[in-house]
Each structure stands twice: as structure tokens, then as C-alpha cells.
Design a protein around this nucleic acid. Structure first.
Length: 272
DNA sequence: ATATCTGCCTGCTCGC
DNA sequence: TGCGAGCAGGCAGATA
């Protein structure tokens, strides 16, 4: 499931492929994939526009156009965004949900087996991403900022890390991995963390996200990078999907519980 | 305002 | 072997 490191990997692969190129047409194969506008207006507003920049905010991919519009894509669980030739059968296979034809004969294809992914074309990106919390790798994400956002929150810290308005881009994998590295039990409520624990969690989040980006993300069942590059970070996972296996730090069996409907993995001895 | 629950989806795994 | 149940999970929207 793509989280910040996986989305960052996709953005880095797409950027040189898209910047400067021109859209010609767009078509939607699964209507719910397109949040806004309607398909006709989408095609009209894309035709003739060039890509100025490809970026990321949280788990959202942002494709900025020379019209000032932004094409926004969220991969959710199983979305993939790739550039292929319009003649390539890969752009017409079963799970294709949207197609963006480029003027030179290539095509930006959105495939999504489980149909959770969403696409927007908007003049003001903040209407889609405006409520996101800070970028965890950004200069303004400090231990003090994290502490301020946890203050007064009685919810489990695991649930708070998954809340995109607290911090953007963290999903189930990196929430579990960061809590393990920081030695914090996932059910601790946010307000109960000491300053030292918040600082440890802040450092753990940045470390785990940076290390994963360095390895092109985590390869799991549902996730591939656009051109088959394998994310290698899954080899570094210490607790996620390791239920029953020994904790790499102390050897105790990793446990799995549910926290606000999410499966959560942790070491009962190292995380208090 | 904050916290929790449900629905959206398909393919895979497991038990009988 | 075949089949249904359960599970995976980010986020919007509804509810408490």
C-alpha cells in the first residue's frame, strides 16, 4: 500500500517522464475514479496543456499544468501511474481506470485493481490537500510541532499517526515501524507522551521514511514502482507483518492487535 | 471539536 | 476440488 516513501518513489520516476510534455485528451474508464470535474470538462481543460512540475504532498501526487490547474492523483491501496505508448496493450488491460493521452503518442495510464484511487483536476490544489498536516520530512516538522499536535489528544498514538491532519503521508506500515523504533506502545494516548518520547518518535518517523525512500519504498503484494523497480525496504521491516516472529531487539514474539480497525504490530516487551 | 464506525472494492488465504 | 467467509486498508462521510 503506497505511503509517503512509495508515492515519493513514483513522483521521482514520473517527473522526468512528464515535465514539459503536453496533454491531448483524457478518458475515464471507471467513473468514480474521477472526483472532479466531469469527464468532458477534464478533457477540455487538459487538452493542449503542458506539465510544469510533478510533486507530492502527503500521499497525493500533484501534476502542475501551465494553465495553473493541478491534476491530483491519490493511489490509495492499489493505484499505479505509468507512462506507456498509446499502442502498448498495458494501457488497455483490465484494471485501467483513467487514460491521459499525450500529444506525442504516449499515454499516462492510471490502473487500480480495487478502485479506491481518486483523481481531481482543480484550479486550487488546497481544496483537496488543504487540511493535511505538516510534511514529516519538511523543515517545519519539528519535535515541538509534533508535540503541539498531540497535546490534549486522548486517542491512541497509532491512530493519531494515521490521521493525515496530524502529520501527512504516514500509513500503517510506517506508523508501526516508527512506534517500534521509538519504543512506544501503540495504544498510549497522544497526550501521555513525554517530551523525550515525542522527540524519539519524531526522529524515528524521519529515519524510517528516509531509509525507505532510499530503498524505493516497501514492496508488498499491492505495490510496484511504475517500471518494475522493486522497493527493497520490506527487508528492513522490524514489526510490520511479522506477527509471532522474534523482535529484532529482544527476541520476544511480535504481537498483532487492532487499533481503531487497523491491524497493528508491536513488541510487547520493547514498547511500553 | 473530537472520536468512532461504515462503506467503498477486489483478490487472496483459510477452513471445511 | 470447490466454495464462502474473512481479511487487507486510506479516506470520506455519517454518527455519537
Amino acid at each position: 500500500m503506497p505511503e509517503l516513501p512509495e508515492v515519493e518513489t513514483v513522483v521521482r520516476e514520473l517527473r522526468p517522464q512528464l515535465v514539459g510534455r503536453q496533454f491531448a485528451d483524457a478518458s475515464i474508464d471507471w467513473p468514480r475514479t474521477l472526483a472532479t470535474p466531469d469527464p468532458t470538462e477534464l478533457a477540455d481543460r487538459l487538452a493542449g496543456r503542458r506539465v510544469v512540475e510533478v510533486g507530492r504532498r502527503g500521499k497525493y501526487i500533484l501534476i502542475l499544468l501551465d494553465s495553473g490547474d493541478t491534476l491530483i492523483v491519490h493511489l490509495r491501496m492499489t493505484g499505479h501511474l505509468t507512462v506507456v505508448s498509446q499502442a502498448d496493450p498495458a494501457g488497455q488491460n483490465g484494471h485501467v481506470r483513467a487514460r491521459f493521452d499525450l500529444a506525442d503518442g504516449d499515454r499516462l495510464v492510471f490502473t487500480d485493481m480495487r478502485k479506491f484511487g481518486r483523481i481531481w483536476l482543480v484550479s486550487d490544489a488546497s481544496t483537496v490537500i488543504g487540511k493535511l498536516g505538516p510534511e514529516p520530512l519538511g523543515w517545519d516538522f519539528t519535535p515541538e510541532e509534533l508535540a503541539a499536535r498531540l497535546r490534549g489528544r486522548r486517542t491512541a498514538i497509532k491512530a493519531l499517526l494515521l490521521d493525515q491532519t496530524v502529520v501527512a503521508g504516514v500509513g500503517n506500515i510506517y506508523a508501526d515501524e516508527a512506534l517500534f523504533r521509538a519504543g512506544i506502545h501503540p495504544l498510549r494516548n497522544g497526550a501521555s507522551l513525554t517530551d523525550d518520547e515525542v522527540a524519539a518518535l519524531h526522529a524515528a518517523l524521519r529515519a524510517v521514511l528516509n531509509e525507505s525512500i532510499d530503498k524505493n519504498g516497501t514492496l508488498l503484494r499491492d505495490y510496484r514502482t511504475p517500471y518494475g523497480t522493486e522497493g527493497a525496504f520490506y527487508q528492513q521491516l522490524r514489526v510490520y507483518q511479522r506477527t509471532g516472529q522474534p523482535c529484532p531487539r529482544c527476541g520476544a514474539p511480535i504481537e498483532r492487535i487492532r487499533v481503531t480497525q487497523r491491524s497493528t504490530h508491536f513488541c510487547p516487551r520493547c514498547q511500553r
